[in-house]
């Protein structure tokens, strides 16, 4: 019971900090702007290249980006939580020494951020529908949303483990890993377009299959990895999520111990 309570309060705190104490409806207004313009950028790029002839590719790109948004939003939120709490709000230590494990509080906080990722994701899909996408949402879509959230938490914990020892470098960590992951996960283009060595990495990257499964749950046909059935992708994706979260928790617990010993929890940088 106490764990649920702590998760809940961390969730509320995460949401409050992420929204900078803005009214929820104002904050949701902010959340609408970025996806609208993000979708418009993709549209203009496709329109510039092919006019309205490549709309299938456009909707395919939007689906990938919508799903990736949940994963990236949750995981980056976790790194910024540590960075901002330590460098900016100076609340990392009070939060750390308050009752309950640090891990629970960080997970709760990231869920507060993850909610905004889910909202943005659904909004991108809604915009795609408005623009004429013919996605057929299957029940497995909601299963995938949950998996993306869990994977986002797991991946975020791995990143957060490193960010405990970083100052300004946390920004590079987020930008680097998320951009690299986006590139090799088939979010906006098929991995076959990548150079050979990156293709090899892309096809052993479990997130590629998670994105593909998510796309199929929206009724989209595959542009690649056609030989793997949708049922098998469901199991692969579950395995990916469970593995990511297990590795994430283990890494975070080890890093927390080392950070405490090294005094990294109080390290501040700003220029």
């Amino acid at each position: 019971m106490a764990i649920i309570k702590r998760l809940y309060y961390s969730f509320v705190l995460g949401w409050k900090i992420w929204s900078e104490w803005a009214q929820w409806w104002i904050f949701f207004g902010y959340l609408l702007i970025r996806p609208i313009f993000g979708v418009a950028i993709f549209y203009m790029v496709i329109y510039f290249a092919q006019g309205n002839k490549a709309m299938n590719l456009f909707f395919w790109i939007l689906a990938g980006n919508a799903l990736f948004q949940i994963l990236s939003g949750t995981s980056t939120g976790m790194v910024w939580t540590i960075f901002d709490d330590r460098n900016f709000y100076e609340t990392l230590i009070p939060i750390y020494i308050s009752p309950g494990s640090f891990l629970e509080k960080i997970i709760g906080r990231s869920l507060g951020v993850g909610v905004t990722g889910i909202f943005t994701s659904f909004f991108i899909l809604f915009l795609a529908f408005l623009l004429g996408a013919n996605y057929s949402i299957k029940p497995s879509f909601f299963y995938y949303v949950l998996l993306f959230l869990l994977t986002g938490i797991g991946f975020g914990l791995i990143l957060a483990s490193f960010s405990l020892f970083m100052g300004e470098g946390a920004g590079y960590l987020i930008e680097g890993t998320i951009s690299a992951l986006q590139l090799i996960s088939g979010v906006s283009f098929t991995p076959q377009l990548l150079p050979t060595f990156l293709q090899k990495i892309a096809f052993i990257n479990p997130f590629l299959y998670l994105i593909e499964g998510g796309r199929r749950s929206l009724g989209l046909s595959s542009f690649f990895i056609k030989e793997i059935s949708s049922e098998r992708l469901v199991y692969y994706s579950l395995l990916t999520s469970l593995l990511t979260i297990t590795i994430g928790i283990a890494t975070f617990l080890i890093s927390e111990k080392i950070a405490r010993r090294n005094g990294a929890l109080t390290r501040k940088t700003n220029y």
């Binding site: 790029v45 290249a49 590719l57 590079y172 680097g176 590139l183």
Partner: peptide, 22 residues
Amino acid sequence: FDVLLPLLGVSTFIFIYKSLKM
């Protein structure tokens, strides 16, 4: 990282143009 990472972000759009045979 400062040198390599920004390229990763923008290269998505290059690959989109590549997929459209631009």
